[in-house]
Nucleic acid binder design. Structure first.
Lengths: 354, 354
DNA sequence: TTGTAAGCGTTATCAG
DNA sequence: CTGATAACGCTTACAA
């Protein structure tokens, strides 16, 4: 190790002054350098395998070319794809994403932001906000440009890009209504996350339009995981009163957990109970039955979030844009008309993409 | 924005010299500061929301507290878990992982390393090496400590932590042999990746021990993805000669692709053809049939890789350790005795964990 | 076109 | 215990 080549070494080898070497290697200032000397410097840099110290550059320039990305969990299937999209667009403009995770904790969210600010990230994109984080986010927003992706915050004071989950919830509701379901359950994610709050709002509004005013809801405050899906589904089954004929899970992970529980309880899906999820994660089409769900263009969302951030960096004082992306209903085998209402016919089978 | 609080601001507000402020805030040097002044400085820092500039610190200290992690693809299920393990152990010792992706390209691998070196990462962990990258990796290893995880390189000159894929391949082979299979196919990942090379070697050696000397192999040079699994499986089916009664796919993704193709070709699994995968990715147990596979303790591997890196940073000139982790056979429903050899009985069903 | 020099925000080594 | 000061490696006005 140890053998770190600095600009000084390059300058010496090329027999030029430090600053000339700097200019020769800078895209912006190279034009002020004689062609011959420029080539000398380039050769020297090449030969010594010179690698500019990004710390020194950032310190001096006041920009790092780093954008922080704060997510709940890289491992979540949906998040991973969003990240890939961001990376894709950021890389194209020479920006490096620096990823930090919150694991759902507000305390870690705070630490992640402080970390990224300490590293002088030029901007921060986050997909991890909960309503309770609004204050702290707005405080940080005074220190660094922040872009909200996937999850939004009320007020719209920050640039935001997210799917329209109200529409998504409504799509789910209308699909179940069309199939003839009237007693419908809902497995809700934490209500202080905009995505879940909006899914619920959209779902209920659409049900109400269809004359169904009551849903059997079970909310998880912990998170929208497979285990929480199991727990919520079990709680829902153990209730008094008639069992719902269909269930809307706020994401696919919960849907899978619920399907497991239903199957263990001897209920067939979709025969006894239909299940619709949300997200269209990898392998949603490989489950048995394959999962009807709402697809979000996650890669695209990530891409656009990256682009939005870049243009924000270019023109810092344009008004905060808000972009809303449409979700899409993907009908598969986990939803069907309820056994008791044979009148309703299955709508023509739609695209089974993937 | 703009309003960046520096140490100078803190010092002024506390009425002490810059260097005193620095000491007061440093865990190592705080003891040389009078209790009263120390508290004054702490208060001032608090009030101003002072956040040390990590760039300046890194530049001055020569250490950044950053460890680069170079992976093929964050999105891959196996990788994501490994990452979580690394993060888990690195965070515990105050190190921040900086993630970079290669997408399987050597050129991008090089760029990722250069990027991380430019940012003066204290060390780099990589799970993305191919045999062809050996030279470049050894060159970089002169500039920064490198830890090889998941995939190894011949020679053992670099600290390495990986699962014993030779054993894993053998486990798969013996399982199929025990079930009575004698005509066995293999869907291979790229052979210039140690994991796949070793899986193949272990698999074939164990088959040979069982008297089976020939396998119907189909190799993918592109990558071990679902689509490549489909392609390889299709190629395997279209061959002359008797169809194999069992197939070992070098990872679960390829196994899923293969199962799709088999099912589309009207073959039932495990009735007509058994399939065993590798990795035990999320939802491997939710497929139908649930997938027999080799489980790797990915989280644990990640953890240990992080710990290894840290201890390497502590004692830089200890000999490069090599840690080998055992894989585990997980028997599920995608493997069964071949139809033609009813003599072989299914071994007692083992743990169906998850 | 090139050289000079002043920092960017810290830490660490000196004296005092 | 505290103050002064020299780096760390680089960029960029400003002079020449």
């Amino acid at each position: 190790m140890a053998n770190v080549v600095t600009l000084m070494d390059v300058a010496k080898r090329a027999n030029v002054h430090l600053s000339t070497a700097s200019r020769a290697l800078s895209p912006d200032y190279a034009k002020y350098v004689g062609e011959a000397t420029r080539l000398k410097v380039l050769r020297a840099a090449e030969e010594l395998e010179y690698r500019p110290n990004a710390l020194a550059q950032g310190l001096r320039k006041g920009r790092t070319g780093v954008v922080g990305v704060v997510v709940v969990h890289v491992e979540q299937p949906f998040t991973a794809t969003v990240l890939r999209g961001m990376e894709n667009s950021l890389e194209a403009v020479g920006i490096m994403p620096l990823i930090a995770e919150t694991h759902g904790s507000s305390e870690r969210l705070r630490r992640a932001f402080e970390h990224l600010i300490a590293w002088r990230a030029d901007a921060i994109i986050t997909t991890a906000v909960r309503y309770g984080d609004a204050d702290i986010i707005e405080r940080f927003a005074r220190e660094v440009p922040i872009v909200l992706a996937v999850r939004s915050l009320p007020g719209g004071r920050l640039p935001t890009i997210a799917h329209d989950d109200t529409v998504g919830g409504a799509l789910a509701a209308r699909h179940l209504l069309e199939l003839g379901h009237r007693r419908i359950g809902e497995l809700c994610g934490p209500p202080d996350v905009s995505s879940f709050a909006q899914r619920q709002a959209g779902f209920r509004a659409a049900l109400a339009e269809g004359g169904v005013t009551e849903t059997v809801a079970q909310t998880s405050l912990v998170g929208a995981t497979l285990d929480e899906g199991r727990r919520a589904a079990a709680a829902l089954l153990s209730r008094d009163g008639a069992r719902p004929t269909a269930v809307f899970a706020h994401n696919d992970l919960m849907a899978v957990g619920a399907m497991d529980v239903f199957s263990e309880a001897g209920l067939s899906c979709p025969g006894d109970i239909s299940v619709i999820g949300y997200d269209d994660i990898l392998f949603a089409d490989h489950l048995v039955p394959s999962l009807t769900t709402i697809r979000l263009s996650s890669f695209h969302l990530g891409r656009m979030a990256g682009e939005m951030t870049y243009s924000l960096l270019q023109s810092p004082d344009s008004p905060p844009p808000t972009i809303s992306l449409p979700p899409e209903l993907i009908v598969r085998d986990s939803t069907a008309p309820p056994a008791e209402a044979p009148g309703a016919s299955r709508p023509p089978s739609r695209a089974r993409s993937r």
